[in-house]
Design a protein around this nucleic acid. Sequence first.
DNA 1: ACCGGAATCAACCTTTTGATCGATCGGTCG
DNA 2: CGACCGATCGATCAAAAGGTTGATTCCGGT
Lengths: 210, 210
Amino acid sequence: MTAPIRLLLADDHPVVRAGLRAVLETEPDLVIVAEAATAEEAVRLAAEQPVDVVLMDLQFGAGMNGSQATAEITARPGAPRVLVVTTYDSDADTLSAIEAGATGYLLKDAPPAELAAAVRDAAAGRTALAPAVADRLLHRMRAPATALSLREVQVLELVARGLANLDVARELHISQATVKSHLVHIYAKLGVDSRTAAVAAATTRGLIRR
Amino acid sequence: MTAPIRLLLADDHPVVRAGLRAVLETEPDLVIVAEAATAEEAVRLAAEQPVDVVLMDLQFGAGMNGSQATAEITARPGAPRVLVVTTYDSDADTLSAIEAGATGYLLKDAPPAELAAAVRDAAAGRTALAPAVADRLLHRMRAPATALSLREVQVLELVARGLANLDVARELHISQATVKSHLVHIYAKLGVDSRTAAVAAATTRGLIRR
DNA sequence: ACCGGAATCAACCTTTTGATCGATCGGTCG
DNA sequence: CGACCGATCGATCAAAAGGTTGATTCCGGT
């Protein structure tokens, strides 16, 4: 028998951490070596000890989000694999997580068996995508007209939260001119001509999370 | 020693059910008698057997939502208490759950001890509200201005569809000045200062339909 | 090595929106 | 009845957003 797969759980909900622990601890080849309640803590713990797979939530109450933490974790040499386990999925979440170096993307409504299988896939370096996520990614490939780039989705999500262009610029550390430029491209791709119309179109198409 | 409190867990996420079970089973006075993966199943199970407290999620993937299930469960004589345990909270969620007869409203990021305490409160018929939820409810009481008039809602729904002021005016057969006037009032009531922010605020509070 | 797309920024101009006045006209309610 | 509120409209000015053009950098694919 080979060495067990060492896991780090990163989720701000104690209940979810307990659930993941309960589900995964019944697998003899998996061992949970640490838990993190914040993204920052996850980054720190992943650096302090040998870990094979990090189960990473995307939404944390405050501070760094899961994508940022994923990017920091995967940036280091000999980094563990990061398997994103989140509740809701949108193009924005999926793309930024994959962009950040996630090995897999699961939804929390996955059955336990699927979860354990995905962990093993991730540990072996194989990509593990939830069916719903894989479907959407393929669908995007086939219809590249409506496919917003990662940056464009990020801009649009902030716009949907009601931020003005200058606020979006500050949030993303770019200039206001760039935000306007992105918006022009977004309008063209969605076939609209105002920010609120873009938000409405993107919402009905499921491009952004509400 | 008195009889243990009998619990029914209703959540569509296996991981969350396992987490709640793990957290609550360590309490000697609590016993989980059933689990439901859908709202419909929760209603059925709550009718079939004696249960003291139902831990109810609000978001289910498909079918009935948690509020509807709560209403059905509490409508029966000798009904169990329903304790809502959800991830995100918005005014719309909170109000409809309380409206439906929920005894308490907790967030999933609550620490285990708080969860167990809330279950005991609910079993005894005491209202158990998460501090964040209680704060918001009190805040609403002090600021009853959140009630939009019928006309204001009509304007806001068209704005949310991406229409410009002039388009809204034509749609409602009023002048652009009137639309702007309504919007000023809407912004004041929602505490925002732009149309997209108003749409975002109204959406999260459930004031407009998407 | 070259090309195209994504992302970045700047400057200019037009349109839309928002802020702030004020005003009229029904209803409702104590 | 008088006070109040919702709905309606107008005018003006400043701010924000949108449209256009052009340019640079970087990266992946041919």
